[in-house]
């Protein structure tokens, strides 16, 4: 459309439509089936999809998948973002919005969503190299990278590689949750892993299913 007026000539319109057969289907009087709105969490998470994808299943490299996260881990991240302990210009404001809407319900909503692994493919060589380095991570993240909810250890399997590598750097630099005793052992470990190995480690965990 050009300019300030939205005027269409009648002839043009007729030419466009009269040449066609136009059917609009409708289900007359159909009763409403159970829909996503029946879960009150659905309407509370609408803003998250712009980054985290449909139902928390991010398809992009730098945005974490948040479906299927353990609710206690989820809520702790929201608290830490809101308090500025886990610094993120994106998540600090959004964490406060989550707190306004109800963190319990939102954590429960995402916990109930089926996790779809990242569509991003990594090179098999990088993943294989990462696997040998990952021997040190197994104690906490488990042999399958699924984490351990009781200890607030998140699953890494299937997360996008870019996000994983970036978090490793944040842990190493002690910029993610500085001083958090839960993370002391993890950070000590990250400090002895050379930066050059992060991409391989990330490729390995990202490739796990």
């Amino acid at each position: 459309m050009k300019g300030g007026t939205a005027i269409m000539t009648t002839t043009r319109f007729a030419a466009a439509l009269a040449a066609a057969v136009f059917l609009l289907a409708a289900a007359p009087g159909a009763a409403r089936a159970a829909g996503p709105l029946d879960d009150p969490g659905f309407a509370k998470v609408i803003t998250c999809a712009a980054c985290h994808g449909a139902n928390g299943n991010s398809g992009s490299d730098m945005m974490p998948i948040i479906s299927g996260l353990d609710p206690a881990y989820f809520k702790r991240q929201i608290e830490n973002y809101a308090a500025g302990k886990r610094p993120s210009p994106e998540m600090e404001p959004y964490a406060k919005e989550v707190q306004f809407l109800g963190a319990d319900q939102i954590a429960a909503y995402f916990a109930a969503q089926k996790r779809v692994p990242t569509p991003i493919r990594v090179s098999a060589e990088a993943a294989a190299r990462g696997k040998t380095i990952a021997a040190q991570c197994v104690v906490c993240h488990g042999p399958d990278g699924k984490g351990e909810a009781a200890r607030l250890i998140p699953g890494l399997a299937g997360q996008p590689p870019g996000y994983l590598a970036q978090q490793m750097a944040l842990f190493k630099g002690d910029t993610r949750d500085p001083g958090d005793p839960l993370l002391a052992a993890k950070k000590a470990l990250m400090k002895i892993i050379p930066d050059g190995q992060f991409a391989d480690l990330a490729a390995y965990y990202s490739s796990l299913r």
Binding site: A18, A19, F22, L23, A26
Partner: peptide, 25 residues
């Protein structure tokens, strides 16, 4: 897409007045 609530235009120009697709739901 038509499920019976169909609306047909038989190609005579200028008849596009009125309800383009009657609403049933």
């Amino acid at each position: 897409l038509g499920l019976g609530a169909g609306f047909g235009l038989s190609g005579c120009a200028g008849t596009m007045t009125g309800d383009i697709a009657p609403k049933s739901g």
